[in-house]
Write a protein that binds this DNA or RNA. Structure first.
Length: 260
DNA sequence: AATATTGACAACCGCGAGACA
DNA sequence: CTGTCTCGCGGTTGTCAATAT
């Protein structure tokens, strides 16, 4: 009992999209909106696989795409986020408005990898290529995952090890130096009132977002799901869910900022 | 000028997760 | 509970243009 193919391969075009195909896809989505990619090609009169339509729309045709060269700020943000998230391109893309995961992935592979190598850093681990040399972590910002009992369960770990995410292994020391300024520690006493896992991290965001919860006076709670770029609100249940496994991070307020 | 190599990026493929019947 | 379907993600490949030989 096999899985049915996502489309009728015998009657679908492949390869580069023509202008006419683009126009058809744009016109259809403008009229009917995104959704049901499987049936879209037929409805739009396209001889394409639904997956192909989705990719074309998301990576190339969407009106909110920025296009053009990456700025130095974007470069640095990508490097920083990659250091924290690994190859989670969709999450990284969520932090860069107008950029797609595919675009960032390509850009990483063609530009940033070399940039890091030229800085003497391993693009995979962000550690010095020659080994041995360690950052002075005390003088650099840190990502600290503060755990509760909930954190004894690994976060974002997969069997095949493809994930580049942050994981917490109960057998390991609770304070891990993950390099690139990452470390994991036990809960801060001052945040006892909060039962969620919390992350202290350097802010890469210009703005602080809701939801908020009981926080120490010098911190503001930010939903990690939202902040890391989950676009669909339903992916985030932080506000309504008392689930102890919800991961949040706190970031220190910047100068001039105050909690609303 | 012809050919080979390299770089950039669009597109494809396979897989996993979640929804649903 | 199980199987199927759809969507989305990350890795890989294909193609074309630019550059080097």
């Amino acid at each position: 009992m096999g899985r049915s193919p996502c489309c009728e391969k015998a009657h679908t075009n492949k390869g580069a999209w023509t202008k006419e195909e683009d126009q058809r896809l744009i016109a259809y989505i403008k009229a009917h909106g995104e959704g049901c990619w499987r049936t879209l090609p037929k409805a739009a009169g396209l001889l394409r696989c639904g997956k192909s339509c989705r990719l074309r729309w998301i990576n190339y045709l969407r009106p909110d795409l920025k296009r053009g060269n990456f700025t130095e700020e974007e470069d640095e943000l990508i490097i920083k986020l990659h250091g924290m998230l690994g190859n989670k391109w969709s999450l990284i893309a969520g932090r860069l408005p107008g950029r797609t995961d595919n675009e960032i992935k390509n850009y990483w592979n063609t530009h940033i990898k070399r940039k890091l190598i030229s800085r003497g850093l391993d693009p995979l681990t962000h550690r010095p290529l020659n080994g041995g040399i360690q950052f002075n972590t005390s003088s650099r910002p840190q990502l600290v995952i503060m755990t509760t009992e909930a954190a004894s369960k690994p976060i974002d770990s997969t069997e095949d090890g493809r994930s580049g995410g942050i994981s917490i292994n109960e057998d390991e020391d609770r304070r891990l130096d993950l390099n690139l300024d990452l470390s994991i520690s036990l809960p801060h006493p001052s945040s006892k009132s909060s039962t969620s896992s919390e992350v202290l991290m350097p802010s890469t965001a210009a703005e602080a977002t809701t939801p908020t919860s009981v926080v120490p006076p010098y911190k503001q709670t930010i939903c990690l799901c939202y902040h890391l770029g989950f676009r669909r609100s339903e992916s985030c249940s932080c506000q309504t869910n008392s689930n102890q496994h919800v991961l949040r991070y706190y970031r220190p307020l910047e100068e001039g900022q105050h909690i609303k």
